[in-house]
Design a protein around this nucleic acid. Sequence first.
DNA 1: CCTTGACCTTCCCATGATTGGAACCTTCAT
DNA 2: ATGAAGGTTCCAATCATGGGAAGGTCAAGG
Lengths: 151, 151
Amino acid sequence: MNIGQASRATGVSTKMIRYYESVGLIRPADRTDSNYRDFGDRDINELQFIRRARNLGFSVGEIGQLLALWRDRGRPSREVKAVAEKHVADLDARIAEMKSMADTLRHLAHCCAGDERPDCPILSDLSGTGTPGRQGADTNLRPRTTAAIDR
Amino acid sequence: MNIGQASRATGVSTKMIRYYESVGLIRPADRTDSNYRDFGDRDINELQFIRRARNLGFSVGEIGQLLALWRDRGRPSREVKAVAEKHVADLDARIAEMKSMADTLRHLAHCCAGDERPDCPILSDLSGTGTPGRQGADTNLRPRTTAAIDR
DNA sequence: CCTTGACCTTCCCATGATTGGAACCTTCAT
DNA sequence: ATGAAGGTTCCAATCATGGGAAGGTCAAGG
């Protein structure tokens, strides 16, 4: 199986397959005489594993840990669970941050007439001149870097 | 006010102030004879505006739009509201993606004994061998790039 | 046999927001 | 005058991903 076939079989782009190899997430694929990468069933399984883990938002580093545990037939499930729970906590924290931002903004937008007049509580809030009793945008919440979405 | 004072006054790092200038978000600051940047009240206000907008998760591009509207005393609040509502929709979409990931993973972790035994529904799911009736990790959801949190 | 098109290879570049550091200059207080 | 603190520019790295160039390989068909 060359890289294009492996890509189609796993839903991982050829670019990313090469990248995962370059960062050591998967071991270097075999090569044909003409220097084409040659993937076996085992590689395909690992790429599918990677894709599923990415779909759950795991970083490449975390996937490295998960792959190592997967390959280790004697791993304690405790370790896998720890990785998963830490990631869940990360996700929950980011969700909470973004929810707080969305709620604040929803409130401001709700208070904004949204017509031809220039008065705007959203801009007032951002400029610090708006109704100071409100929650305002002056929290130190910001979203956090994560990954990208499937095409 | 030099850049360090401006940074302390606004909570925007000196690095980011220079960056915002370089990308045209703020206009180039005045310079002293010794080539130090010199910020006035107006610059300070804009930097605070930017920080608040970042805290609400707006991208630099969106902040550019918001700043332009802010400077335009005759803008229709409709336009501001549109920018805000689009951003809320973006946030909500990302929240939904991440919530789906977290819920899936929470379920898997809940089903995982988390002890010394190697059997693990999390790895089973990732490897595609797990109880196929389940929601599984085979959705095409992934988080999306956003910004970072305040220091 | 040779061409064509589809595929592979490596290498470099760009993204977005942010931080870190090097090399060098300025200001201020001792 | 000397040193610390802080300014300046420029370059690099992060993370996961895609785009593209330049060149090698392969299979089908004329």
